[in-house]
Design a protein around this nucleic acid. Structure first.
Lengths: 112, 112
DNA sequence: TTTTTTGGTATACTTTGTGATACTGGTTAC
DNA sequence: GTAACCAGTATCACAAAGTATACCAAAAAA
């Protein structure tokens, strides 16, 4: 196997690891679409639990994908903001959305 | 939430479901890169077990992502071939590879 | 003649991801 | 005064996903 094929495989596996579970990309998508607050994001993703959202946001903060801003007025306001790095995945997400729509045509409805 | 946002979320989740586990995209990538035979694909993806490859290929055949061709000469030769639908994901994989390389710069090596 | 290759399958085990449920403590609307 | 909203955390438990290991028959190479 060629050297650069190994590198490409590793890069792909990095990305897959980053994508991780069920909820990572829907969360990124939600935040990139302008949702900022915890409850807001939660409501934008039907089915997600608070536990998973909390866990994912924490991981994403550590990976520099979101920034957590705390505004200490009363009441305290917390906002999540996507980093540029996070936004750079947005384009891929959009293509995945388009592919997903097409896929539904083919597999679910049996078109070719 | 707007109607088309729900649709987009569903399409995204379809695609995520399609991507499935750890091995699906490396397999697609391998096949799209010209590997055809079981052992060939296996060798091109270090770490994969025969069991997982077998299972994935079977699932992918059912989802019309690969075609399994059996040539009944002696010895019997079996080749897997990507469908157009499968190939259409190739572009996204390439972008994921590029993103993964960039991601490594940022997160692993701490660049901005 | 023994070893290796091919294309897998079977069984058992372990890890991880995810879900369910309940709790918190402060704030504000009714 | 009590109900609801915010931004979470803690604990338990289960099912899915993945790994390890062994096995198979046929053919070809050493």
């Amino acid at each position: 196997m060629a050297r650069n094929q190994i590198d490409e495989l590793r890069a792909l596996q990095d990305t897959l690891y980053f994508i991780g579970g069920k909820w990572r990309l829907p969360i990124i998508n939600s935040i990139c679409n302008g949702n900022k607050r915890f409850r807001e994001i939660e409501r934008s993703i039907p089915g997600i639990t608070r536990r998973m959202l909390s866990k994912e946001l924490k991981d994403m903060e550590m990976s520099k994908l979101v920034q957590r801003n705390v505004y200490t007025d009363t009441p305290v306001l917390i906002e999540y903001e996507p980093t540029e790095h996070c936004r750079s995945f947005g384009k891929i997400i959009q293509e995945m959305i388009n592919w997903g729509k097409h896929h539904r045509e083919i597999v679910v409805r049996g078109k070719s």
